[in-house]
Design a protein around this nucleic acid. Structure first.
Lengths: 130, 130
DNA sequence: GCTTGACCTGGAGCCCGCTCCAGGTGCCAT
DNA sequence: ATGGCACCTGGAGCGGGCTCCAGGTCAAGC
């Protein structure tokens, strides 16, 4: 415990973010994370900021954004403040896709529930309807 | 137009269901569809029932069910009415996963919208906050 | 009778997003 | 000083779900 100055080992970050060690390394390799700081021995030490960024990545991934587009977002972010409007546009477009996703999910879920209801009717009466 | 007796060519089915020709053939190959009827020339002719089943497949796929599990469902269906309770259980379990999916999507979407709001604040005031 | 187009088959290939591996280094506790 | 463990690297491999291809068959229209 020599540093309470908010750095985290790969293991801790994996634990906290739910990404595997391999995935964290992979994301750094492809440039989705910018190069993570290292200690004297060459081991990664993540900052609070890295973890925040990983939180964003987690949101985008979980909502189905492909890596290529997350890379685009990462690049914009690296380019500084003059890209904020582009970032807003990107996130809004994504938000719309998420909305569509939810709508589709709900629609299909309704159909599945209808099927369940139909099956219940069949077992309920003890005789097949189709 | 020799048959109005409800059979459909692969092209028509692809059109209607949104599955590609290759995907339809693939699904038949792996047993997700049972063997599709053929005309004299060996070309597939889908029935209304086939199309109905494809509708179910579409629901399950769009809600993220893996093919392996759809195969299990297909197998149960083929085995007849005594598997209906199992089918209900399978669909209910899936329905719960869909519910969780939607909840997760909504949660992440909220975070994304917050980020958009934050970015708006930044461009709005013309000065960065982070 | 010839072209065009929709279809057929078996099998190879592809993309995505990781995941695993071998071989090696360094820190820490006993 | 020795063992164990967390970590390192570059590169290969994998699983899921299609997608594409070559080479061939038939049917209908010009």
């Amino acid at each position: 415990m020599l540093s309470r100055m908010s750095v985290y080992t790969p293991g801790q970050v994996a634990e906290e973010t739910g990404f595997s060690l391999d995935t964290l390394r992979y994301y750094e390799r492809i440039g989705l994370l910018e190069p993570i700081g290292r200690n004297a021995a060459g081991q990664r030490r993540f900052t609070q900021e890295d973890i925040g960024w990983l939180g964003m990545i987690r949101c985008l991934r979980d909502t189905g954004m492909p890596i290529a587009e997350m890379l685009r977002f990462a690049e914009l972010t690296r380019q500084g403040e003059h890209t904020i409007r582009d970032r807003i546009a990107l996130l809004e477009a994504h938000d719309r896709r998420v909305e569509a996703q939810v709508a589709n999910l709900r629609e299909k879920q309704t159909a599945i529930r209808n099927k369940i209801g139909y099956y219940r009717g069949v077992v309920g009466t003890g005789r097949g309807l189709s």
